[in-house]
Design a protein around this nucleic acid. Structure first.
Lengths: 152, 152
DNA sequence: TATTGTTATACTCTATAACTATA
DNA sequence: TATAGTTATAGAGTATAACAATA
């Protein structure tokens, strides 16, 4: 075969990353920070602990990300109504407009990619991607068990 | 439709990244540094300028990456035979063994992913990925032209 | 004058550990 | 005692700009 499915997936992944970088080039947001806004938009006002869980990063990291987004006017910290230790992170109207634009871009890209695929191939491609995602999930999950790697 | 092709691709990309992290967890190498070794292995002994081009990062960044790999005993800097300004970066036997292992892992993963896809879907999936990569390339290339983005 | 690689400087993302204020 | 968030510290990865040595 000419190119393996894995190599093609890696290529598409790299291009997806570049496309994301392109999408944020016109904003003062880094992709990571934009991802935080996206997550807050989906989850609603959240504690930093909740965000750390959703984003799978450390609490310390969330502090830094929220600090930067707060300075930029994208989020505000408000006191948690019942737990005085915690804060709730909320989007400002500026961030909401940005997320709305991100969602439009996302939908546009989705349509563009779907149109690039021949209609006869769409169902098979979807099944293939689902199968690959499932297999990768298995591999990643299995790695939670002690991973051995004898080459130093 | 249940899940869009784009969302599935993003999911697979995330899983691919996690799997890569898993693969390097047993080595003292970060994914970025392992990628440098991979590139040198494919290109042969290279100047840092060539590596900066191949990796699409700044020359300064290459200096840091090679510094770290040199300290770890993975590469050596040798004088360029004809250009006294430049150095050639070469893999040590240690790094060559590591790259050989990476190649074995890569082949294994390729086979595993291919096996996860139903034989009847393979050709269509390959065509779909090719089409998607082509479309993404267009989009990324078009972005080299001044990208406008009115949302601040 | 142009190129190769380095030093200087800085920002982002990430982590663990120790600490404060609360539960 | 446990949890939410911060400060302290550190390491990767990335960039631009200035500079030395060499083409």
């Amino acid at each position: 075969m000419s190119t393996s499915i894995l190599d093609q997936l890696v290529e598409v992944s790299v291009l997806l990353e570049r496309d994301m970088a392109r999408a944020f080039a016109g904003t003062p947001l880094t992709p990571t920070r934009a991802g935080v806004l996206w997550t807050i938009d989906q989850a609603g006002p959240s504690t930093q602990q909740a965000l750390a869980g959703a984003l799978q990063v450390s609490a310390r990291n969330v502090t830094g990300l929220i600090d930067a987004l707060e300075v930029g006017g994208y989020v505000i910290r408000t006191p948690h109504p019942t737990d005085r230790r915690a804060v709730l992170i909320e989007l400002t109207p500026l961030a909401e407009a940005l997320v709305a634009q991100m969602r439009r871009d996302h939908d546009e890209l989705t349509a563009s990619l779907l149109n690039a695929v021949a209609p006869a191939d769409r169902a098979a491609a979807t099944r293939a991607l689902t199968a690959i995602a499932a297999r990768l999930s298995q591999l990643v999950a299995a790695a939670s068990v002690p991973a051995k790697k004898e080459i130093p």
